[in-house]
Amino acid sequence: MAIIEAKRLTYTYPIGEKPAFRDVNLEIKKGEFVIITGPSGCGKTTLCRCFNGLIPHFYGGRLEGEITVCGLNVREHPTYEIAQHVGMVFQNPENQLFALSVEKDVAFGLENLGVPREEIRKRVDWALKITGTYELRNRAPYELSGGQQQRVAIASVLAMNPEVIVLDEPTSFLDPIGAEQIFDVINSLNKDLGITIILVEHRLDLISKYASRVIVMQNGQIVLDGNPREVLVSEEARLIGVGIPKATLLYKILKLRGISLNGPPLSSDEACRSIMEVMSR
């Protein structure tokens, strides 16, 4: 079942001369883990803003074509309604957190919806535990490290019990260890809870192995869409300037020089295994 469906979708910002993206046809199914990548300015962030109705309701501009998210026509339903189905996590967690304690931040969305107190308690604790931030619940968000803050931002979205979570470069401000923890959390939301994940990302080294699908955008259009292995090993992806994982790149270079490993690897672990296989042949 399609959880997000776009047909001939074209969008132009109020101040824009040409569309930020045009003629996008896209179907995302429940439970998919989709990475959207492509050069800066290709329209990927703009496209994601349609998934919870920020476009057109907040940004204005001209939206043509059709988009349905969780069965709701985005044009006809306000953002607060769509936001109960689709959670958004942004690049810089500092822009998203504002309360004086982690717990209050995570409870904020539910309080606004008038959810009963006991239910809020339950859902906040659940979201804090899944993201590994339960121990931090009484701390002030601004006292936390960037990685901890981003996990709190994810918890506050998770507490709303969304079917889809959209994350726009959620690890770019984090150190590598913090980034890895975020990717682990995102993966478990997808694999353990069945939440559909849409991740906008340039750095694909650590995350590609978790994805079920990679979409590449360029100049406002979807130009590649498919299985991560096929997309990332393709010559088109390299020419567009996609940040191909080092393990996949190594496979490509060796192949050009006549050495074939078993299938393109998406991570260092996979590369290591397939090199060992060749060694023991």
Binding site: D175, S268, A271, C272
Partner: peptide, 18 residues
């Protein structure tokens, strides 16, 4: 330092026994 090994280094770490 909470940095990570580069991906290529991780591959060669796994191949050390060879």
């Amino acid at each position: 330092a909470s940095v990570a090994l580069p991906e290529i280094t991780k591959i060669f770490k796994g191949l050390e026994d060879f």
